[in-house]
């Protein structure tokens, strides 16, 4: 049911986005919020679905959230989250600049200034795609070490068309890659870091296989990729955690945390799981503070089944 509803969201968004992009940003964001609320009010069992997901998360995390209030807020963010960075397409850098409130830019610039590359430690919290959008707009040399995203703005798609040895085109990975292909991608990402580029890697990617770490996230034991730890250790690049959430007024709150380094010998000492857990703890902390920004996490099970 949830998967079917996600498809409905996609169709609705495809229809309304061209109109929303012509409106003032604040109005567009408000309308997307209203659409999410309508979902909750009009679609049978939708409110129950949200409340169950929020209540379960609250129980697992030991949080005393007002379940109905969080569910309402979460529903208002659903279409905003699904809209990804499409609202910014066709807008100039000057137009979108006031829509971002950036905290900790000094951490970003200090990490970049070291010249050893930056592992931009991303996640799926809030409006996570807007971090990359902002970085591209600001001219930071960013590459993604991830699967190719299916739905991003035309602006972002254009940024991904960089070619050459350090180009984005050959840095995308796939769950279906052979170990040799995956190794090539990791080496390319390492080379990009050595050249001083920023490489975005999500710390909350559930993965199967040998190079994974078991960690607790949102009160559940899960298996995560630890490739980002290996990449940071082998390159010596600074690791910079980043978060982005969208507020009711349409402002994207970008937050760069202080950077850190992963010791080179982390693989040999078997401490990589600790780094994975540590990064997830920081994300979990944000979820506890801003549960309404956790659309992706609270419905994870269903999304996973859709992929399978």
């Amino acid at each position: 049911m949830w998967q079917r509803w996600m498809i409905v969201h996609k169709v609705v968004l495809k229809t309304v986005l061209p109109v929303l992009r012509r409106l003032p940003h604040r109005v567009s964001v408000a309308l997307l919020g209203a659409m999410g609320r309508l979902d909750l009010l009009l679609v049978p069992n939708q409110a129950k679905k949200y409340e169950t997901a929020v209540a379960e998360a609250a129980e697992r995390l030991g949080c005393s959230w007002d379940v109905k209030d969080v569910s309402r807020k979460l529903s208002r963010h659903t279409y905003r989250w699904r809209a990804r960075d499409f609202l910014l397409d066709g807008r100039s850098d000057r137009q979108i600049a006031p829509w971002f409130k950036v905290i900790g830019r000094e951490h970003l610039d200090a990490a970049v200034a070291k010249g050893q590359g930056v592992v931009l430690l991303a996640n799926h919290f809030g409006s996570h795609l807007l971090t990359s959008h902002w970085l591209f707009r600001q001219g930071y040399p960013l590459r993604w070490f991830s699967e190719r995203p299916r739905n991003v703005s035309k602006y972002m798609t254009k940024q991904f068309q960089t070619d050459g040895p350090l180009g984005q085109a050959r840095m995308f990975i796939s769950r279906r890659s052979t170990p040799a292909d995956a190794a090539s991608s990791i080496l390319r990402a390492g080379r990009a870091l050595n050249a001083g580029l920023l490489v975005k890697v999500a710390c909350d990617v559930r993965w199967c296989g040998t190079h994974t770490a078991n960690a607790s996230f949102l009160g559940r034991p899960l298996s995560f990729s630890k490739t980002w730890v290996s990449l940071a250790a082998m390159s010596g690049a600074a690791v910079l955690p980043v978060f982005c959430r969208i507020e009711e007024d349409g402002i994207y709150h970008l937050e760069f945390l202080p950077s850190y380094h992963v010791p080179k010998e982390v693989g040999r000492t078997g401490q990589d799981s600790w780094w994975v857990q540590n990064a997830l703890n920081v994300v979990e902390d944000r979820v506890k503070h801003y549960p309404e920004q956790s659309n992706d996490y609270f419905f994870w099970g269903e999304v996973e089944e859709q992929v399978a």
Partner: peptide, 17 residues
């Protein structure tokens, strides 16, 4: 390397480095 020795991507990266 992969089929007989069970080497995965990160092992291969370490071998290359």
């Amino acid at each position: 390397l992969v089929e007989d020795l069970g080497i995965d991507s990160l092992d291969l990266v370490s071998i290359v480095l």
